[in-house]
Every structure is written in structure tokens, then in C-alpha cells.
Amino acid sequence: MTAARGKWLQLAVLAIVIAALPLIFPSGYYYRVGALIFVNALSVVGLVILIGLAGQISLGHAGFAGIGAYACALAPAHLGLHPGLALVLGAVVSGLLALLIGRPILRLKGYYLAVATLGFGILVSMVLTNERALTGGPDGMAVEDIGLRPLLRDLGWRISGGEFWYGISGIALLIGAWMALNLLDSPTGRAMRALHGSEVAASTVGIDVARQKLRAFVISAVYASVAGSLLALQNGFVTPDIAGFMHSIEMVTMAVLGGVGSVIGAVLGAAILTLLPQVLTVFAEYEQLVLGAVMIIVMIFMPQGLLPSIMRRIRGRGE
């Protein structure tokens, strides 16, 4: 199978799943869960580029999600910008910030990189929590409606909020996945992949290591920011939790759980970690216990993540 065919196959599978799932949804609540999975998956796709491709870790990407989310809350309220445009503004701000801090931060390696990115995430969430006059503090602030649904209604298409955001998030994920798959295929993608193996080796074959790392960092920041914006827009409300340390950890866990090298793995990881708390509500007392155990067991038995391990097993049987 050629790489190009693989790309279209993955996108087609994703598109069919997104389009077909509503056929079996028993209630509006499932649209909400679906939309959450897609939004989470979008930010995780960005992390796949950073962690899986370029081999760099970040424990602070929720900071970028926070910037995206608060851009959608603040820009309409203070600058009179349309919420849709605010999403773009948030992405630009996140990208520029990543560019600015990326160069010094990415010189660090391993755990030092982890603590530096962690520090960045904490700084963002601290500003959002403390600048109460602007952000509403820990109580959060309202986000203006994007105004598309009334427009659709005027055009004679009545859909519920849940259905609307399911569609928007699904489309956003498809676009994000398509762009990521293109990148994976490109010379840039191959150059980034070389970093994952060994930075020293990569530099000896003429790859500008710092530049490729920075590129991956900026791209993943933009993904996280857009995902944060989409979440804020569909919730109509945002609090500093979105930029918190736990959210960063959750994002990395989703990426690693699914299989950090692939886009479909990202969706799988996001789906599992989003569904788990919903499935476990009956055993709420044991939720943390189960979540922790799942993380450990998957990592022990499938250190490359779920998807690559499953694929290897399927292929192994085929041979």
C-alpha cells in the first residue's frame, strides 16, 4: 500500500465513522460526547506531530488550549470581534507565542523540556485565574454564540445545538487530520521523523534540527489552540481549568495511549479517555482506580500505544 493511498483510506474511514455514528445515537447526549471526542482528538493530533513525529514532549499544551478558548471569550467582549474570527486570532497568538518561547525551550531535553513546558502551562493558567477583572477569575466567563445556527435556521435547516457542534467538531477534526497526514508525507515530516531517532544523526545528514523542532512545536500549539476555541464556543462558557496542568496531562495521555505515531491512534486515544469517565459513572468511587490501572496496563503491554499494537497483531495474523 502506498503512503498516499494509506492517507486517503484513513481519512475515508474517519469521515464514514463521523457521518454514520449519529444513525445509531439514541439521544442528544451522544452528540455532545461525540463532539467532545472530536475536539479532544484535534488537539491530540497536534501532539502526535510534536511527540510522535519530532520526539519532543510537552506537559504544558493546555496553555495553548487556554489561549484559544479565552481568545473566543475575550476578543468578542472587548474588541467586538466575531467569535469565529476570534478563533483565528487565538490560533495566531498561540502560534506566535510558541515561536517565541519555542526556541529557548526546545534546547532542553527529556525531563528538563517537560518541566519547562509544564512551567509555561502553569503560567498561562495562573494569569487566567488571577486577572479577575479581565477573565472573571476561577468562576470563568461567558462566550458569545457563534451565530451560525440561527443563520442555518433562517435558511430552513433546524438542528439542535448538540447536532450542530457534532458536525462542526467532526469537520474540524477531518481538516486537522488531513493536514497532519499531508505533513507526515512531506519532506518536512520526514525531516521531523529523523529527529525522533537521533538529533545528532539528523543534524549530520543536514537537517536543521532546531528549525524542525520549532516547526512541530508551533504546529501543535495551533492545533491545541483551535481545539480550545471550539470547546469554548460549544460550551458557551470557559474557566481556567481548560489551561490547567491536569488538562495537559490528559492530552499527552490520550496521545500516548492511542499510539503516538498515528492520526487514527490519536482519535482512538481521545475516544477512550473521553468515554471512560462517562462509562464509569456507575462506579464513580472507582473511577480514578480504573483510570490509573488502564494507563499503566496499556503502557506495559502496548508501549507503542493501542493502535500500533493492534495493527501489528492484525498484520502478524495475515502473514
Binding site: G28, Y29, R32, V33, N235, F237, D241, P277, Q278
Partner: peptide, 21 residues
């Protein structure tokens, strides 16, 4: 009864679940 863990995002999901499902 659901435990939203203090997370507004989760609370919104559970509110949807309570009402719709």
C-alpha cells in the same frame, strides 16, 4: 447522581446527559 469533579466542561456533559438521556 454524577460527579463532575469540579470541571465545568464535565458538568455540562452531565447536564446534557441528565436532560437528554
Amino acid at each position: 447522581l454524577y460527579d463532575d469533579g469540579g470541571d465545568p466542561n464535565k458538568a455540562r456533559t452531565f447536564a446534557t446527559r441528565l436532560i437528554e438521556d
